[in-house]
Design a protein around this nucleic acid. Structure first.
Lengths: 174, 174
DNA sequence: TCCTTCATGTAACCTGTTACATGATTCC
DNA sequence: GGAATCATGTAACAGGTTACATGAAGGA
């Protein structure tokens, strides 16, 4: 089995914050795990159905408006634990930002510099968002480790973009 | 059009290192752009065919063993340039490492620590690979900016894993 | 002759994206 | 009554993975 990530994210959210509907999970994704793994409702609903069919979750009674509540089973719990502990995580890299970095020398120096400055700003803006979240959470709570990682990531990229722009500018003038 | 990355990587390699066959490009991918964007031959061959059909590249005479040589056209060149200069790059995040970080609190402290130590080592090993490459290239040449980015990335992840392990260990004891 | 490398592809499958589609409930 | 939000889904398509399949050329 290859891409179990969506499954694991769902099992994780259900474990951490308790039983929920597909709708709830879609919201939880947006507000918590989204900066680590993105998924929309059109992916979540069918995945929950499959997971129920495979016994990883159970579906409760239908509530108002057809609401279905999912709960993790023993088997789901075990699977998540095993995945976390066991799985070697080196899937092939596919990073559009890095690809653009790779191709950067194909641009004129002024073009590259302008691009990098723009990107540095964009990274800084996203960074500000995550840092605000960090403030709110006071550096504790469920998503903290991932949030820390995300912040470090954006800081690194902002710095890389800025310093690379400086380097190119310097080389073009000097 | 959404995922133009493979296309752009191919146009970029053809621009930077000259006309090549699908086979050559597969090799070039492995040895240069692989740490930024991965693709195998089964993706590259059909993509080149599509690109030829759309006039982004031309196919030369067949060489020995059915070898086909591709060359970038004006149109391909323009497309690549526009993509680099214009495109806003914020595709949704989908980072398995970050997801695992998010789910980390579901493990027992000792399990998390063991996992993070293992990961820190793995990052360090990959880092050593890229740093060796950097030494070879003496910090210059076509892929340099991306290589720099890759190195910063791995350093950051290694540090994050190590420091997070320390933090958890400290909290569990103290 | 045999092995390796060069060289091309296809097919089935899984994951993710975008757009379409529907309807109940609650609040103003 | 009308708008927002709750709540579920499907379908067509694009992108990526794995495995299968074939054969020519070159070197030991």
């Amino acid at each position: 089995m290859r891409g179990m990530s969506l499954r694991m994210a769902l099992l994780g959210l259900l474990t951490a914050s308790g039983p929920a509907s597909g709708y709830d999970l879609t919201k939880r994704f947006e507000s918590s795990v989204n900066h680590a793994w993105h998924a929309g409702h059109s992916q979540i609903y069918p995945e929950l159905a499959k997971m129920a069919a495979e016994g990883l979750v159970t579906v409760g009674e239908e509530g108002p408006r057809g609401r279905k509540t999912y709960t993790v089973t023993e088997e789901g719990s075990r699977l998540l634990h095993d995945w976390l502990v066991t799985k070697e995580n080196f899937r092939p890299v596919r990073d559009e930002g890095a690809l653009r970095a790779f191709l950067l020398p194909l641009l004129e120096p002024e073009e590259s510099v302008a691009l990098l400055r723009r990107e540095a700003e964009a990274y800084a803006a996203r960074l500000a968002g995550l840092e605000a979240l960090w403030q709110v959470k006071q550096g504790s709570g469920f998503g903290t480790y991932a949030l820390d990682l995300g912040i470090r990531q954006l800081r690194m990229m902002r710095d890389w973009a800025g310093e690379t722009a400086d380097r190119i500018e310097h080389a073009a003038r000097g």
